[in-house]
């Protein structure tokens, strides 16, 4: 079994603990060299790990306190081993010992202070990153909630006209929806089923007013946020979407007409 002969079967046998020591070593050596083998082995491990979660069981609550008091003890009794001193025999012996002891006390005290400080700093660093994490996720949830509330308002508004724009010969399967409130002039667009634009191009929405196209803005497709607030208009007879160069065009390129519908 040379490293290049290690197969999926060996990886499974290894994960299951079936291989004799010698072969297990060969698998380990191969894993250290071969990235794709390593990725496959991790996938096997992860699938077993996921399976193991099916047996979740809640431990008795008192175990937590016991574990954390053991950890507190362990942190307290960090090796504060200080060098042993042999009493010198000179006349300065006692002065030396006294000075040495004073130093020891001071060193010991500093050590304690330092390790306390270090512990506190570690705690602080962790709590800070935890806090930032929470703030970011909260902010993103808040944004999402705001977007969704806004979309819901748009979709629920009884004064809205819903216009379903349908695909053209150029893009027969495309579809999009416009929600338009002529009173407030607000125009919202649901991206519906528009294909991704080619690179360097963007979709652009137009309102057709008395036969003239009026720019309602360009937009990017985003499945997690499909409703977009577009330009405002009080009257329109039709809406259409074309593919234009990035940033949009002053007038539509009708060859690239994706979807259109009359109001």
């Amino acid at each position: 079994m040379s490293p290049n002969k290690i197969t999926s079967d060996h990886l499974v046998d290894y994960a299951m603990g079936f291989l004799p020591l010698e072969e297990a070593r060969q698998v380990e050596a191969a894993l250290a060299q071969d990235e794709s083998l390593k990725a496959e082995y991790q996938e096997i491990q992860d699938s077993l790990a996921e399976y193991s979660k099916a047996f979740e069981k809640e431990p008795p609550a008192h175990l937590k306190d016991e574990i954390f008091s053991m950890i507190a003890d362990e942190l307290e009794s960090k090796p504060e081993s200080l060098p042993e001193i042999k009493p010198p025999s000179s006349a300065w012996k006692w002065v030396g010992i006294a000075a040495g002891l004073a130093l020891l006390v001071s060193v010991g005290f500093n050590y304690k202070l330092n390790s306390d400080l270090e512990k506190a700093e570690n705690e602080l660093a962790f709590l800070r990153s935890e806090k930032e994490e929470l703030i970011t996720s909260y902010a993103s949830l808040e944004d999402q909630a705001k977007d969704q509330a806004e979309e819901l308002d748009v979709l629920r508004n009884v004064n809205n006209k819903t216009i379903t724009l349908e695909g053209t010969d150029f893009m027969p399967n495309a579809m999009a929806m416009v929600y338009w409130n002529p009173e407030t002039k607000a125009v919202y667009l649901h991206q519906g089923k528009l294909p991704e634009p080619p690179s360097g191009m963007q979709h652009q929405l137009w309102a057709i007013v008395d036969g003239q196209p009026v720019d309602m803005g360009v937009f990017d497709l985003n499945e997690s946020d499909p409703v977009k607030h577009m330009g405002a208009i009080a009257t329109a007879q039709a809406f259409a979407i074309t593919l234009e160069k990035e940033g949009g065009s002053p007038s539509p390129n009708l060859e690239n007409l994706c979807v259109i519908a009359n109001v």
């Binding site: 193991s52 979740e56 809640e58 431990p59 950890i71 705690e123």
Partner: peptide, 21 residues
């Protein structure tokens, strides 16, 4: 970094899975 809060988070997150195993 030996943060106790981190360990507590770890314990709360994984105690059921580990105990189950």
């Amino acid at each position: 970094a030996k943060s106790i809060s981190a360990f507590e988070y770890l314990y709360d997150q994984y105690k059921n899975a580990i105990y189950g195993v």
